[in-house]
Amino acid sequence: MSSDPLWTIFVNACLINNFVLAYFLGICPFLGVSAKLATATRMGGAVTFVMLISSTCAFGIHRLLTLLDAPFLTLISFIAVIASSVQLVEMFIKKVSPALFRALGIFLPLITTNCAILALALFQTNKGYGFGQCIVYALGGGAGFTLALVLMAGVREKLELAQMPDVVRGTALALVVAGILSVAFMGFAGLGS
């Protein structure tokens, strides 16, 4: 069992080891859905929600598998839980906000293959977090993901208006922006311990 205080876990997951900018997790939606600020915010919300659910389930599953002495099933059962909770969120959003459902498009089912979520489940298991720590870790990870997405979307909305050669438009440019953001986030290293 890890003894990290809760606030360190949150700051660590959100800023210092930001899932997107320091661990390179969830890059696909990060590049794919960050063109518009409004979509980016909601996508962040959806991912945070799925993270919370899957983190809670992963905690239980890990306990169960340790009890059964079957660690080789970890990966398979984690991904099954994540896939089903994404399905749940998809149905929920479709019912509550069809407009958002259309805006997120293909990226909604693709939350399943968002590596940040599976990684969160795996990392919390590796670090041996307790239940409360898992929840905080998931919240921090989600907040960090949303933060990175929103920052990126803000920059990209402005970039739309800038003049630049055709050849750099698109993914290459987005990657350069991501690189600069990543440099900026390195400034957080050393916060906490």
Binding site: L175, S182, M186
Partner: peptide
Amino acid sequence: VVMVLPSGGFFTLAAWLLLFNWLRR
């Protein structure tokens, strides 16, 4: 040092993509 750090990954990939875009064009 920046090349081994996360940001280096973004920059290197951006450079390769630019090269490929340019070749294709």
